Amino acid sequence: MTRSRASAPTHHPRHERRGEARLPAVAATLAAIGLYLALPQQLLVTPRYVLPALEVLLLLPLIAINPRRLTRQTRTFRVLSLSLVFLIAASNLVALGLLVDQLVHARAEDGRSLLIAALQVWLTNVIVFGLGYWELDRGGPVSRTQLPRSELPLADFRFSQDENDDAVGEVADGASKSSDWVPTLVDYLYVSVTNSTAFSPTDTMPLSSRAKLMMAVQSVAALLTSLLVIARAVSILH
């Protein structure tokens, strides 16, 4: 027998939730650091372990402040978290610039290793921009779950859930307005993947100038990587 919608469990307001889990963001950050560590030496501007060590040093206090759930936010927390994302993004964009130079001038025997490095740079690009969107949208992961909607900063992205309240019942029940839904890291990583593969927004639209600028930088970087990899792969095969 189908349960009536009137007896469905009541959704708790976001400020009564336990907050988003810390582990997914830590795993994504460590994955990006590991991909950087595995890059060829010619794509690094510092000794191999300098930037990863600095990134881990920024990550540790973030874990200490919110070890299990993201429920506490201070000015220091925001500065550290945004600095960590910026550092990973900047180092990866520098690696991309060096990769472009290497792919253009590399000898044939270097081609395969550079193609693998291009995949590493592309994956890091997906991860770090996903983390960037996650950190910035609506004040960040702590604000999104702990503050009432009336106190949230303006949204940087419009998800499909934000406009599904007038859809059929089983869709509308999961909409932002009816269920108090907010995006999590997985949602922002999905946005990052689609932007890096379609080179443009898909079902999630950027609203703010900074979101549009970030998506533009990401899509151009992904397009550049893809075009150079294809061109280099063709030259190797021939």
Rank of each mutant, 00 (worst) to 15 (best):
G139P: 03
S143N: 09
R149K: 11
D137W: 02
L131Q: 05
L103H: 06
A108G: 12
R149C: 10
G140M: 06
Q120R: 14
P141V: 04
N125S: 09
Y133F: 14
T145P: 03
A118P: 04
L119Q: 08
N125R: 02
L103S: 10
R138I: 09
L103T: 11
E135H: 14
W122E: 00
L96A: 14
W134R: 09
N125D: 13
G97S: 07
F129K: 10
G132D: 12
Q120V: 00
T124D: 13
H105M: 12
V142Q: 04
A108Q: 11
E109H: 13
S143F: 11
W122K: 03
S113F: 06
L99R: 03
D101W: 07
D101Y: 11
L136V: 01
T145A: 10
T124V: 12
T145E: 11
G139E: 04
Q102G: 08
H105Y: 13
V104G: 10
L114R: 11
E135V: 09
V126N: 04
Q146T: 14
R144F: 11
L131F: 00
Q146W: 02
R112L: 13
L99A: 06
V128I: 08
L147R: 14
Y133I: 05
P141D: 03
V128W: 03
A106V: 13
H105F: 11
G97M: 11
Q146P: 00
R138L: 06
G130R: 02
E109N: 14
G97E: 09
V128H: 01
A106L: 07
G130M: 07
G130H: 00
F129H: 15
G140S: 05
I127D: 03
V128F: 02
L131N: 02
S150N: 05
R138T: 10
L114F: 08
V142H: 01
S150G: 05
N125C: 10
V126T: 01
W122D: 00
S113A: 13
G140I: 00
L119D: 12
